[in-house]
Write a protein that binds this DNA or RNA. Sequence first.
DNA 1: TTAATAGTGTCTATCAGACACTATGGG
DNA 2: CCCATAGTGTCTGATAGACACTATTAA
Lengths: 309, 309
Amino acid sequence: MPAPQPYDQAAEQEWLASYDPHAYTPVAVTVDVVALTLRQGSLHVLLVERAAPPYQGYWALPGGFLRAGQEGLAEAAARELAEETGLLGTADAEAALSRVHLEQLGSYGAPERDPRMHVVSVAYLAFAPDLPDPQAGTDAAAAAWHPVSSLDLRPAAGQRPAGAPDETHGGGFDGHAGGEVPPGSDGTAPPEPARPRTALAFDHATILADGLDRARAKIEYSPLATAFLRHDFTIPELRAVYEAVWDEKLHPGNFHRKVLSVPGFVESTGTTAERGGSRGGPRARNYRSGDAALLHPALLRPAHEDEIR
Amino acid sequence: MPAPQPYDQAAEQEWLASYDPHAYTPVAVTVDVVALTLRQGSLHVLLVERAAPPYQGYWALPGGFLRAGQEGLAEAAARELAEETGLLGTADAEAALSRVHLEQLGSYGAPERDPRMHVVSVAYLAFAPDLPDPQAGTDAAAAAWHPVSSLDLRPAAGQRPAGAPDETHGGGFDGHAGGEVPPGSDGTAPPEPARPRTALAFDHATILADGLDRARAKIEYSPLATAFLRHDFTIPELRAVYEAVWDEKLHPGNFHRKVLSVPGFVESTGTTAERGGSRGGPRARNYRSGDAALLHPALLRPAHEDEIR
DNA sequence: TTAATAGTGTCTATCAGACACTATGGG
DNA sequence: CCCATAGTGTCTGATAGACACTATTAA
């Protein structure tokens, strides 16, 4: 096959011009991270408080500009995650970061999603074991883990006008928005006293909702639920991950048998947990993540008829 | 909730500067489309021949620059698909385009993926019914549907250097690259006379491979296989779609029963096809796409043990 | 007439989920 | 002691896939 032509500036100018003169209008590229972890048994997301306008004082996903010519998208996401949260420096924190799973979630590029200029944001999704409290980066007023249930996941007003929604169904298998029904209210529970939910900056509520959908689907087919746990874990701890992410109670006995029946999902360490359950019971056996990259058969979520169409 | 602050140029400068001075280095954003269709029973992808360096004379995915401030990502993808292929203008072609399914595939942003500058490409995946032969746009020497099996899906040399691969597993459930085993050779078939496969420009082989993986996974859980067919279709025609995309022979009887057992997948039109099979047989009944957005239960691919891990 | 094909019936192995049961250990 | 919990056994209904069979139509 012929070798690619070397760089030719004149040809580039001609090529660019032949496309569209507007190609020279600047577009900014940022990388945002939906970092999920489990704290006290519930799903939390890492947020930073914006120190400058627009959306000053709002909480937002950690992120920042792609360093042009210097890094790829996944590299930028890993850098932002480490940098914006202060989860860097100590050997302990770096070891924790090395266990974080990072995958691309999708890109968001509606022209009006940032009031200053057209910004295309490439979102990444991270699964992390329980991490220490973060330190705010230089550009953020604060950084903290927020319970997902405390956030308003409806698209912010003014975002995603009709006619220009970005398709981001990639990998998501249910069409529901994830934020339309607040986690914790499943229709049968008594109506909670309406506690105000925190609104997010830009279209980050939409990105977070997409990330949650992805996470819920991902742990069905991949062993990534173990990414929320430390090296050794018990089956009940793994079940707690599924219950937190899906917001569903699972049958302990059936879950146990199903996990062990999937080849390569977990492997026994031969040890047992130090203590039994919080309210008594036998000590559970310890397991570590197996070598399977995909679960077969999958651990499917309980079907809800109203989510099919 | 407080209203967003109005535009404030001074604050923006400060905000940008606080991130990183390199943020001002330009990054270009393009949108590329993996458009798949069925022709003569096999899967084809739309490609354009590059008229200018780099990769002059190579075939590439149709795409182009995002029009900053004017359009969202999905809009740009739809525009490129229409524009670069001449599939616009006639009422017939526009009707065909309106039936095309478009979804975001992923973004590719390794610094060296384009030799001229750092280009972040947002890839879209399109499923289309059999479309007419395309017309090349102004910037392409030619445009044509290529059989997927005639293409070299291995990453091009020099692309994706170790250490900076972009994670694009989103929605893909099998970890295999899709191009490592050429479609049509399943290990049992006799070795074909090695016909040279067409190499693609940039990292488009990787993008195409990811798109094929996504397509193969997507038709398991969604009724999108019908997007490859015209309004009315028969179950054997639908089966041909699955067989082409998965490159697997399926059991006609079991497939028929399974499709009809999934609520909302297809609904009967009451009519029957004009002709029987190409080599005889009864006339099949016609169906149209149902109202389900997700297939439950799913039409899972036949399991191959070697793809699990 | 022949052979390929549409569509249905039936059997079996597997799996998801419900339920029951025991054994263990914290409060 | 009490009771929540870990883990196992067993049953039932749904499903995937193999195979058999008929009815229909192009060549």
